[in-house]
């Protein structure tokens, strides 16, 4: 029997055993899933987004289920970089799986400080969560080509670590932001983050989320996320981690065919912590059945007329 290759390379230095990545914010600091997910078996993990100072997060309620989706307004609740390095990262380093640390800051100075701290750590890469507002200019970095370029460029100068940029879908043309990130020196693109969304309780007339507006994830966003991955694939040559509503192996295949080199699981982890395993098994079966044998050959293989 011919051996199936699931190994993928993201850029020069991140090598994944398989293309399944656990996405930021949905896997906590890993330890929470100790009993349910074998980290050694997943392709890579991205930590909850870490900020310079600890953040308590937004007012509850923070979660609402919607049609085939999940609305959340967590507000980047996290322990802050200091405690993260002391108490959370050591656990994740025990595994053979690449650990990518997601960071966010209020303004580029905070990003740069975080990067300088992380430069000393043995991690596989840094992912910039740029879906946060630049308070001074009153705009979201990920929604502005120039802001994205400037931030990525500034960070690029300060680190040798592989640099991932996580794109927001809340833009008119995601390819322009993707190109900005590429030009500024990003190594890998991660997309998409959640879609800006809200819910209202008509009985009480109040918003369903404490933060009023939150982010939509899950199967509801899959077709849109897929379209964005496909567009970005055509617009840049960077490796892509594609995410947005992937629950099953078939979902994962769609993203890979559209052009994702790896696929990210977010909401799926909540729905079914075993999803990663089922997707890996499913990928192997599919590749065997199609006599393709190497998952990399499937990337971006969409038949277009």
């Amino acid at each position: 029997m011919k051996k199936i290759n699931l190994k993928v390379k993201l850029g020069q230095r991140i090598i994944l055993k398989n293309p399944v990545v656990l996405e930021s914010g949905c896997f906590g600091y890993g330890e929470e899933y100790r009993d349910l997910i074998d980290i050694n078996r997943v392709g890579a993990i991205v930590t909850k987004t870490i900020t310079l100072k600890p953040r308590a997060g937004n007012l509850p309620p923070r979660l609402v289920e919607t049609a085939a989706g999940l609305l959340n307004s967590i507000g980047l609740a996290n322990v802050g970089i200091e405690l993260f390095l002391k108490e959370k990262l050591p656990y994740l380093k025990k595994f053979s799986t690449p650990v990518i640390v997601s960071i966010a800051g209020e303004g580029s100075e905070e990003y740069l400080k975080l990067v300088q701290i992380l430069n000393k750590e043995k991690i596989a890469g840094i992912e910039l969560n740029i879906s946060c507002p630049n308070i001074k200019k009153n705009l979201v970095i990920a929604q502005d080509e120039v802001e994205t370029f400037n931030l990525v460029k500034a960070v690029r100068k300060k680190t040798e670590l592989p640099l991932l940029v996580k794109l927001s879908p809340n833009v008119t043309d995601i390819t322009r932001i993707a190109k900005s990130a590429e030009k500024a020196g990003a190594d890998i693109l991660s997309l998409v983050n959640t879609f800006s969304a809200m819910g209202i309780d008509s009985e009480t007339g109040s918003p369903r989320l404490g933060g009023v507006v939150g982010g939509l994830s899950g199967p509801a966003i899959k077709p849109i996320a897929l379209r964005m991955v496909w567009q970005v694939r055509k617009a840049t040559s960077l490796p892509i981690i594609g995410a947005g509503g992937i629950l099953s192996c078939n979902d994962a295949l769609e993203f890979i065919i559209a052009g994702a080199n790896a696929v990210g699981l977010g909401t799926a982890i909540f729905v079914n912590p075993h999803a990663y395993q089922e997707i890996i098994t499913g990928l192997k079966k599919y590749l065997f059945r199609k006599a393709i044998y190497d998952v990399n050959e499937l990337v971006g293989s969409l038949h277009e007329n």
Binding site: L36, G57, V64, E65, F270
Partner: peptide
């Protein structure tokens, strides 16, 4: 009770004050 997603402490969605 609070609405939950992960149920295991990972998502920080089910908080109370």
């Amino acid at each position: 009770e609070e609405h939950m997603a992960c149920g295991v402490g990972a998502c920080r969605g089910c908080v109370i004050r």
